[in-house]
C-alpha cells in the first residue's frame, strides 16, 4: 500500500469530480448571458448576411453575364453607327439601294419632306 494506492484512489475521486462538476443553475446561466449582452458595447445584433432587398436582384447569378452582353452590344452599335465597316455599307446599298446610311435613318427623309427642322 501505499502511497501509490492512495494516490490512485484520489485520482479516481478527481476523475469523478471532473466528470460531474458543480453546475450553475439555469437561472444564473441566463442571468449571466443577459449581463454579457448588456455589457457588449453598442449592443447590436450582427446580421447573418446582407439583407438589403433593394439590391437583392444583383445577387442573381445571370445578372452579370446579361449586363456584360448588353454593354458589349452597346459599344459595338455605337462604333458601327459612327464608323460603319464596308460590309455594312455594301449590305445597305444592296437592300436599300443607297450606300448612304443617312438616307435610311429617317432623319434625311423627314428634313426633305418638311423643309424645316433639319
Amino acid at each position: 500500500m501505499t502511497k501509490q494506492r492512495a494516490e490512485d484512489d484520489l485520482d479516481v475521486l478527481f476523475a469523478a469530480a471532473r466528470k460531474d462538476p458543480p453546475l450553475p443553475s439555469d437561472a444564473f446561466t441566463d442571468h449571466m448571458r443577459q449581463m454579457a449582452v448588456a455589457a457588449t458595447p453598442m449592443a447590436t445584433v450582427t446580421p447573418d448576411a446582407p439583407t438589403s432587398s433593394a439590391f437583392a436582384w444583383l445577387r442573381a447569378p445571370w445578372i452579370w453575364s446579361a449586363g456584360t452582353a448588353f454593354a458589349s452590344a452597346l459599344v459595338v452599335g455605337v462604333f458601327v453607327g459612327i464608323n460603319p465597316p464596308t460590309a455594312v455599307l455594301d449590305a445597305t446599298a444592296q437592300i436599300f439601294e443607297t450606300p448612304d446610311l443617312w438616307d435610311v435613318s429617317g432623319y434625311g427623309a423627314y428634313g426633305e419632306t418638311t423643309g424645316d427642322l433639319l
Partner: peptide, 17 residues
Amino acid sequence: GQGDVRAARALSDRLTP
C-alpha cells in the same frame, strides 16, 4: 468588444460553468 452580441452570449455560455 466590437459589439457582437452573439459572441457575448457564446462566451458567457462557455465561461460561466
